[in-house]
């Protein structure tokens, strides 16, 4: 719900979450797929280096969503997690 208040105040906000259906239910404008509930921006089953590379990709996707109008903001693909 926070992202909606940020957007209402004119600050673009991207929600990074594992569970897109919740983001859609609450009608968030900008959404990026995170990995898992228990680890939205990491994958504990991979090495620390791989994990950070994965995190970097998600963050870049999220920043990209901030720099675009939501109409062309595609949902991004999730990976197995948590």
């Amino acid at each position: 719900m926070l992202e909606k208040e940020f957007e209402r105040a004119g600050i673009p906000a991207v929600l990074v979450t594992a569970l897109l259906p919740i983001a859609r239910t609450i009608r968030a404008n900008r959404i990026t797929q995170g990995i898992g509930i228990t680890s939205p921006l990491g994958d504990p089953r991979t090495s620390r280096a791989e994990e950070k590379a994965l995190r970097r990709r998600i963050v870049l996707e999220a920043l990209d969503a901030l720099a675009r109008e939501p109409a062309d903001n595609k949902e991004t693909k999730g990976r197995i997690g948590g």
């Binding site: 719900m1 992202e3 208040e5």
Partner: peptide, 22 residues
């Protein structure tokens, strides 16, 4: 909470927010 945070960020001229949730 969203409004209060937004006010804080707007005053500081934040351009965008990356919000993470579980």
């Amino acid at each position: 909470i969203g409004r209060e945070m937004a006010r804080e960020l707007a005053l500081a001229n934040v351009s965008g927010v990356l919000l993470t949730s579980t």
